[in-house]
Design a protein around this nucleic acid. Structure first.
Length: 590
RNA sequence: GCGCCCGUAGCUCAGCUGGAUAGAGCACCGGAUUCCUAAUCCGGGGGUCGCAGGUUCGAGUCCUGCCGGGCGCACCA
């Protein structure tokens, strides 16, 4: 139950009854009416702007309108008090009993509490990682990977039918370069003589390509073909290309698995091209009159060295908000990346997705407008593309920049980082910032056991919820702590201010899910979890000062049961948030 | 030169899609605490929300123009 949505319904009902009683004129548009927690808890539990947003259509002053509405809301059983404040806010104080009932809700639903029907099963496609299979994942990729994965989980929790997709760029010039590198490595192994570095100019010299060559020779299914590939190496034989791509993709999949990431679908660019999807998509645009041959203005300022003015096949991106029209064919006549990307996005829409989300790295920022323009053009505005740009990760150790080149040149791989600090730490920290803000990742800090470290702080809250249970079992061995006993705990014994504010915080969880899902912003979950942990730790600490507030009251089994129900609810909501992040909730800190 | 993103306390950042007196952690200052439910607690100072206009009942949030920083800028992906 989203309590704010619940009270919004009550407010709407109150308005409707005033309308039907003739006290208010008919009011159709209630879309701007909101029911939210007030910023300052002193103002009450629930606040609505109803009187302010309806004052104009109702033709009344906000405070007069509030004066009509307040008595209606006061009639509700769970409303203990109503105030009109400021320019016309209506503040409600909700009975403690209402809040306490949420504890039972949470225990009954478990980590499913907070699941929302908001998405109504609408299909959403989240495309993330999509790294070219020409090398290993490096740490820069990890942020987008974790972000996309958490966003997908968040949307699923909010009721969307999410498909997690990886677009494999297995066609084009970079794959040619990979294949060439691969063949050279094979040749090296065959001849026993290393080629000079200059041979790999513009190619992929990374060690993983040597591994690929070794794997090919060791694989009985293809080792027999190697001789033929080398003899025909000038033409980049298909078998070599397919093997190299498959090998790299497997390595990437392994690294993603290290992060706990598993896509639902890997879409192949090559398959798309071979199926004629590009021709089809461009014929579509052609039919709409959105393709023409023209000459682009050279970019102002820095001119590329080899700039040459010539006619090109162009898409009218400017008709859809882009800054310039965009080329679809390279000078050799083949499609640009943009052209195949149009086909790919069109394909996603044709597969039934009207909501597309792409997660890209910072260096692709300049590509957003044209892709959104293309999606608009190709779907006639029926589908929306949201692009989430993940800014750079600034990797340090005690403030010093990190260079951990073990495998891939001067690059820190995902595997390096996961091995260093662990999957859960990587995942959580990557989500503690808005995607469009740069992120600092300090090895020493993220593994520190202190409240400055959000991973530790949140994990510890969960672990502490379990350690309290361990203590209780020891202190009160006869107390029934089964799920059923907790579910029917006498929660009316929860009367302390700290306990009630903790419950109110928990009650906000469903609303956090919905707003974070709507905004495509998983970082809000991280901040919420931190707040819960802070409330929980703070309350625990009050028990050090005042033993009457401790969760375990040895002389009062009933009270203990009620408090443990609350503790279980805290653990449940924290676990539920960590589940979205793909972080394992630990039961014990070591 | 153009586009996108960012600019909030000394530092690192939130700010719930336009609401009330702009919040948290660190750091700083002042207190408490040797407790066992290990891995502190309470309080305090600190702000021209980059600057200037605009929109309206109301702007950190939306619009315009500047300033500063990052990324990108035909034919790579």
């Amino acid at each position: 139950m989203n309590v704010f949505a619940h009270f919004r319904d009550q407010v709407v009902a109150a308005i409707e009854s005033l309308v039907s009683a003739g006290s208010l004129p008919p009011l159709d548009d209630l879309s701007k009416l909101s029911v939210e927690p007030p910023r300052d808890p002193e103002h009450g539990d629930i606040a609505t702007n109803a009187a302010m947003v309806l004052s104009k259509p109702a033709g009344m002053k906000p405070r007069d309108l509030a004066g009509l509405l307040a008595p209606e809301l006061e009639k509700l059983d769970v409303v203990d008090g109503v105030d009109i404040a400021g320019p016309g806010f209506i503040n409600l104080r909700i009975a403690d009993a209402f809040w306490r009932a949420r504890v039972a809700d949470i225990l009954a639903a478990g980590t499913a509490w907070g699941d929302s029907a908001m998405g109504a099963g609408e299909p959403v496609n989240v495309e993330y990682v999509s790294v070219n299979p020409t090398g290993l994942l490096h740490v820069g990729h990890a942020r987008g990977a974790v972000f996309g994965d958490a966003l997908a989980a968040l949307l699923a929790k909010a009721g969307y039918a999410v498909t997690k997709e990886y677009y494999v760029n297995d066609a084009g010039g970079q794959i040619d370069a990979l294949t060439r590198s691969f063949l050279k490595r094979l040749q090296e192994i065959r001849s026993g003589e290393a080629l000079p570095d200059s041979e790999f100019e513009g190619l992929y010299p990374g060690e993983e390509v040597i591994d690929a060559a070794k794997a090919a020779l060791a694989d009985p299914a293809v080792s027999g073909e190697v001789e033929g590939w080398l003899a025909d190496s000038g033409r980049l034989p298909d078998g070599a290309r397919v093997f190299a791509v498959a090998y790299m993709l497997d390595r990437i999949r392994e690294d993603l698995a290290e992060l706990g990431i598993h896509h639902d679908l890997f879409s192949s660019e090559r398959a798309l091209v071979e199926a004629g999807a590009v021709d089809e998509a461009l014929a579509d645009l052609e039919a709409k009159g959105l393709i023409y041959t023209g000459v682009l203005e050279p970019p102002k300022g820095k001119l590329p060295d080899d700039w040459e003015e010539r006619p090109q096949t162009l898409f009218r991106a400017t008709d859809f908000g882009d800054d310039t029209d965009r080329p679809l064919r390279k000078s050799d006549g083949s499609w640009t990346y943009f052209a195949t990307d149009i086909a790919y996005h069109r394909d996603k829409v044709r597969r039934g997705f009207n909501t597309l989300i792409d997660v890209w790295g910072a260096d692709h920022g300049g590509y957003v407008k044209r892709m959104q323009a293309a999606v608009k053009a190709v779907t006639g505005g029926a589908a929306a593309l949201d692009v989430k740009i993940c800014q750079l990760v600034n990797l340090t150790n005690r403030g010093e920049p990190v260079k951990m080149s073990k495998r891939a040149g001067n690059v820190v791989t995902v595997r390096d980082v996961v091995e260093e600090v662990g999957r859960d730490v990587v995942r959580f920290i990557m989500l503690t910032r808005k995607n469009d803000a740069p992120l600092d990742f300090d090895f020493a800090k993220v593994t520190e056991q202190s409240k400055d470290n959000p991973v530790f702080y949140v994990q510890y809250a969960h672990a502490r919820s379990h350690s309290v249970f361990r203590q209780a079992r020891e202190a009160l061995p006869d107390l029934d702590l089964s799920e059923a006993a907790l579910a029917s705990a006498p929660v009316d014994r929860l009367t302390d201010k700290g306990e009630l504010s903790l419950i109110k915080r928990l009650a906000g969880w469903p609303r956090i899910i919905e707003s974070a899902a709507e905004a495509h912003e998983p970082h809000r979950i991280a901040f919420y979890l931190y707040d819960i942990a802070a409330d929980f730790h703070a309350h625990w600490n009050r028990g050090r000062e005042d033993p009457r507030l401790r969760f375990v009251a040895e002389d009062d089994a009933e009270l203990t049961l009620a408090r443990l129900a609350l503790v279980r609810a805290v653990g449940t909501v924290v676990a539920s948030g960590l589940e979205i992040f793909g972080v394992e909730p630990v039961e014990e800190m070591r």
